[in-house]
C-alpha cells in the first residue's frame, strides 16, 4: 500500500495546482464561453458565442493567419536548426564559442527578440539604413514591408530567432552522440554525404525535431506579445483578437473571447495528442 501510494503522494501538491488552477481555469473559461456570466446576470447556457465567432470573417482569417505564423516559423526554424547543427556537429577550433553563440537566444525572453526585430527591420529601421548607406534603397518605402505588414515576416523573424536554437541544440545533442557513431560506420561502408544525411542522420534527428517543434508550434499559435508588437492592423493573430474582445468594456463580448481561447486550447491539445500517437508509432517501428 505504501509503495503504491508513494508516488501519488509525491505528486499530490503538483497535481493540486494543475487541477485547480490549470484545469479549473479551463473549465471556468469553457463555462463562460457558453454565455454563463453571473456577472451581468446571464444564467443561460448556449453556443451563441461559438456560432458568432465561426461566422465572423475576422475570426476565421485570424485562425488561418495564426496557423500560417505557427507553421511558417516552425518549419523555417527546423530547416535552419538542422543546417546549423549539421555544421556544428564535428569538433573544430572555436567550437565552444560556436555552441555558446548557438544557444545564446534560448534564455532570452521573447519580447527582447521582438524589440530587436522592431528596431532592425521596419522600413526605417537599422537594416534599412544600412541598405541606404550602401545605396541599395533611397527612401524607407523602397525597403520591403516586413514589420507592420500582413505577410507577418517580422513576426516570423522574431520567432525564428528564438526557435532555431531551441530546436537546434536538441538536434545537435543527438548528432554529437548517436549521430557520430552511426555516421562513421556508414562512411566506412561507402555511403556518401547525402546518403548519410538522408538515411542515417535524419531519422536520428527526427525525435528531437518533433518534440521541440510541437513546443514551438504551440507557442507560435497562441502567441500574443510578438504579433502585437510586430504585426499590422489586419489580420491579427487569434490571441490578439481574443484579448481585444476580453478587454471590451461591453461585457457581452466576453463569451466570444472565451470561446476563441477555448478554440486555441483545443487545437493545441489535439496537436499534442496527435504528436504523442505519432511518437508511440515511431518508437514501435524503430
Amino acid at each position: 500500500m505504501d509503495e503504491k501510494s508513494r508516488p501519488w503522494l509525491m505528486l499530490l501538491p503538483a497535481l493540486l495546482i494543475i487541477v485547480f488552477l490549470f484545469l479549473g481555469g479551463l473549465v471556468f473559461c469553457l463555462v463562460q464561453s457558453f454565455n454563463y456570466q453571473p456577472i451581468i446576470g446571464s444564467y443561460t447556457v448556449n453556443l451563441d458565442a461559438y456560432a458568432s465567432i465561426f461566422t465572423d470573417k475576422a475570426f476565421l482569417l485570424s485562425l488561418v493567419y495564426s496557423l500560417y505564423i505557427a507553421f511558417g516559423s516552425t518549419l523555417l526554424s527546423i530547416i535552419l536548426a538542422v543546417v546549423t547543427a549539421m555544421a556544428l556537429r564535428k569538433t573544430f577550433i572555436g567550437k565552444g564559442l560556436a555552441v555558446f553563440t548557438f544557444q545564446f537566444p534560448i534564455p532570452i525572453p521573447h519580447i527582447v527578440s521582438g524589440v530587436a526585430i522592431l528596431m532592425l527591420f521596419t522600413q526605417s529601421g537599422f537594416i534599412s539604413r544600412i541598405f541606404n548607406m550602401m545605396q541599395l534603397v533611397d527612401k524607407p518605402s523602397d525597403f520591403p514591408e516586413l514589420v507592420y505588414s500582413n505577410n507577418g515576416v517580422g513576426i516570423l523573424l522574431a520567432l525564428i530567432w528564438k526557435f532555431m536554437p531551441f530546436i537546434g541544440i536538441s538536434v545537435l545533442a543527438l548528432l554529437q552522440t548517436t549521430g557520430l557513431a552511426y555516421e562513421d560506420q556508414a562512411a566506412s561502408l561507402g555511403a556518401n554525404a547525402w546518403q548519410r544525411f538522408r538515411y542515417i542522420l535524419l531519422p536520428i534527428m527526427k525525435p528531437a525535431i518533433l518534440s521541440t517543434s510541437i513546443l514551438t508550434f504551440a507557442y507560435a499559435f497562441g502567441a500574443y506579445e510578438l504579433p502585437f508588437l510586430l504585426g499590422g492592423v489586419y489580420p491579427k493573430t487569434l490571441a490578439i483578437i481574443a484579448f481585444e474582445k476580453y478587454n471590451n468594456v461591453d461585457l457581452s463580448y466576453r463569451p466570444q473571447s472565451m470561446a476563441m481561447s477555448i478554440v486555441i486550447t483545443i487545437i493545441v491539445v489535439s496537436l499534442i495528442l496527435l504528436y504523442r500517437k505519432m511518437a508511440v508509432k515511431n518508437e514501435v517501428s524503430s
Partner: peptide, 17 residues
C-alpha cells in the same frame, strides 16, 4: 494598411516616411 497607433505614425513622420 494603416499605422495602428499615433506613436507609430509619429515614428513614421520622424523617419520621413
Amino acid at each position: 494598411t494603416y499605422p495602428k497607433s499615433s506613436s507609430e505614425l509619429n515614428m513614421m513622420f520622424s523617419n520621413n516616411e
